[in-house]
């Protein structure tokens, strides 16, 4: 208790958002607390998507929402404790780095429900019973942009640039490759990774070098899943007048005229879903504490409408939408691992 009080003093970035809207029928007013990662807000991706979902919960569910951006990585657990000690209905953490913090704080606060985006279960695989890990089937979204790349390519060669070579990023690649195969069996798929350490997600110069090599080999569309390394992919695409596909959020504005679409990881959908469950007095713990969002619930998607999708051929979109139907209906299985 004292700790929590101290923690809340040490967390200057706590914000409450005005008076909440009316609570819809059949719902109850819930209090939702959200903890961003250090320096997370303003990333135009992931963290901003979480904020979006939180605001939607406030608007549509009349939820009382509050969020914290810790000043230091040591404050992560403190921020979670602060919300738990104040009796919030749901405490949500944004990013896999919170996984162990959430476990620890959840065990100490058995009456509070926690959710964590991209949660990694502990070594022994036992997720605390008041924790829900929120994951995304990235391979399904990658499958659709792969299908689109296969249709869009004139050279019948498409590329993939990954950040760090880890199973998570391989899932993007495998889904993408399967998508390309679905619409263009003759297409060549070239995949490269920026490295084998976390800095591979922050090296745009490396991204540009990989993309340059791919474009030079005849590739005309590249999908990246590589954090800010992807900026280099966009730079190369602009330099050589080729196309690129963004990731996680709508990346059109990063390099207008180059990014033909983006694979979307709808963190907002996941956050809003969890808040709505709370507001209906329900808890969905998914499969042993892991809930995964895919095409069927809109947890992953791609940009297909509006000015940011203007360079896409409507016939191609129709074809990809048909494939989406197949995946949702379970007739097509997208390979992950």
């Amino acid at each position: 208790m004292v700790l929590a009080a101290l923690a809340s003093l040490a967390l200057p970035a706590r914000r409450t958002e005005g008076a909440p809207a009316a609570v819809p029928n059949g719902h109850r007013r819930v209090r939702v607390g959200l903890v961003f990662d250090v320096g997370g807000r303003g990333d135009k991706s992931f963290n901003d998507g979480a904020y979006e979902g939180l605001m939607r919960a406030r608007r549509e569910l009349g939820a009382e929402v509050e969020y914290v951006e810790p000043a230091d990585s040591d404050d992560r657990a403190a921020a979670l404790r602060m919300f738990a000690s104040r009796g919030f209905d749901r405490v949500m953490a944004i990013g896999y780095v919170f996984s162990r913090d959430v476990d620890e704080v959840a065990r100490d606060n058995p009456d509070t429900e926690f959710a964590c985006i991209d949660y990694a279960p502990p070594e022994d695989g036992r997720v605390p019973r008041n924790v829900v890990g929120l994951r995304f089937r990235e391979e399904e979204g990658s499958f659709l942009v792969g299908a689109l790349a296969g249709l869009h390519s004139r050279s019948h060669a498409v590329g993939f640039v990954g950040g760090m070579d880890i199973p998570l990023i391989r899932r993007f690649e495998h889904g993408y490759t399967a998508g390309v195969r679905a619409t263009c069996p003759a297409c060549r798929v070239v995949a490269s990774y920026a490295g084998s350490t976390p800095s591979a997600f922050k090296d745009p110069e490396k991204g540009a070098a990989l993309a340059t090599a791919q474009y030079a080999s005849g590739v005309d569309v590249i999908f990246h899943a590589s954090g800010s390394t992807g900026h280099g992919v966009f730079v190369a695409a602009q330099r050589f007048h080729r196309a690129a596909i963004g990731v996680d959020a709508d990346q059109h504005d990063e390099m207008p005229g180059v990014v033909i679409t983006s694979m979307l990881k709808r963190v907002d959908v996941a956050i809003f879903n969890v808040a709505r469950d709370a507001s209906l007095g329900r808890i969905d713990r998914g499969d042993h504490g892991i809930r995964s969002f895919g095409l069927v619930d809109g947890g992953v998607d791609y940009v297909r409408t509006g000015p940011h999708a203007a360079s896409l051929d409507p016939a191609h979109i129709a074809r990809v939408e048909a494939l989406r139907g197949e995946v949702v209906a379970g007739r097509v299985r997208v390979p992950g691992a």
């Binding site: 800095s199 922050k202 090296d203 745009p204 110069e205 540009a208 800010s228 900026h231 730079v235």
Partner: peptide
């Protein structure tokens, strides 16, 4: 050189 080549600054772009 990194910034001019990338046409913007990206956090941690020195990359080792």
């Amino acid at each position: 050189q990194l910034t001019l080549h990338q046409r913007e600054f990206v956090a941690y772009m020195s990359g080792g």
